[in-house]
Amino acid sequence: MSREQQDALSRTALGVFRLNGQFLAVSEKLAEPAGLTAAWWQVLGAVLPEPLPVAGIARVMGITRQSVQRIADLLVREGLAAYEPNPAHRRAKLLTPTEAGRAAVRRIDPGHAELAALLMRELGGQEAFDETVRVLERLSTAMDTVNASYQEPPSHG
């Protein structure tokens, strides 16, 4: 690997880490008035289209199953989600939002829409926004491929 490639990798990783922090900070602000945290919102958002097992939510979100399990249990305890039987797997129940959970996410929609419009304008329009999304999705897909085949670098010692 050339020094230029290493620098590009470092800049990419640092940029993504910074973006993650920025998205988490703004997500906390958006979620708070709805009585949610950013993490609760993420997990609820993952199951809005269809109920999923905890392991499936973890895969979609790219975090550990244990982290999702903890949040899912809190959401169920707060009445924002419920576990239901999973016909495909007896022990891995499906998490589904309750009406209260869906209502909480709907309360975030106006702020979410405003943020999307602000970000779109800052990026220079919808076309630039769409291209940003495509690049990030391509990066994520490439990282999935790299992670699946990655070998530890040789040790020099």
Rank of each mutant, 00 (worst) to 15 (best):
Q69R: 10
N147V: 09
S27C: 02
A72Q: 06
H112L: 14
E152W: 09
E114N: 04
L30N: 00
S10C: 13
I108T: 01
P154E: 15
V135W: 10
R102V: 05
A113K: 13
R102N: 04
G15L: 08
R59K: 03
I71N: 03
R90V: 15
A148E: 15
L139M: 09
E50G: 02
I63R: 10
E84H: 11
N20A: 13
A92T: 09
R102S: 03
M1E: 07
A82L: 15
L44Y: 04
P154L: 15
Q66H: 07
T98C: 02
G125W: 08
S140V: 06
K29I: 03
A13M: 14
E114W: 07
L36H: 07
D109W: 00
E28S: 05
Q42M: 11
G111H: 04
E127A: 13
V47R: 01
E114L: 08
P85A: 14
G125D: 08
P110H: 01
G124F: 13
F17Q: 12
G15Q: 10
F23N: 00
E50V: 11
P49K: 03
E137A: 09
A72I: 05
V43A: 08
T98Q: 03
T145D: 12
E32C: 02
R91V: 14
G111K: 02
T96P: 01
L9D: 11
D109C: 00
P154Y: 14
E122I: 12
P53M: 06
D73H: 06
N86E: 12
E4G: 00
M61D: 04
E32L: 07
F23C: 00
E114H: 07
R77Y: 13
R11W: 08
E131H: 08
I108R: 00
R134H: 07
L75N: 07
E114A: 12
A104L: 01
D144L: 11
A58Y: 02
V76H: 10
S27H: 02
G157H: 15
Q69S: 14
R107L: 01
G56A: 04
A72S: 14
H112S: 04
Q5T: 03
R121V: 14
A148M: 12
R138Y: 12
R138V: 07
N86T: 12
Q66A: 13
L118P: 04
A100T: 01
R3C: 03
S67R: 10
V105N: 01
P153H: 12
H156M: 15
V43D: 05
G125T: 05
P85Y: 08
S140Y: 09
Q126A: 14
R107D: 00
A39H: 05
S2P: 03
Q5L: 01
Q42P: 01
R65A: 06
Q126S: 13
V105D: 00
I57Q: 03
P154H: 15
E152Q: 12
Q126G: 10
P51D: 05
R59L: 05
F17K: 09
V105M: 09
A81F: 08
R77I: 07
L139F: 03
R102H: 02
T132D: 06
D7G: 03
L75S: 06
D73L: 08
G56W: 03
I57R: 02
G157W: 15
A117E: 15
L14N: 13
L52A: 12
L19A: 13
G125K: 08
S2T: 13
E99G: 02
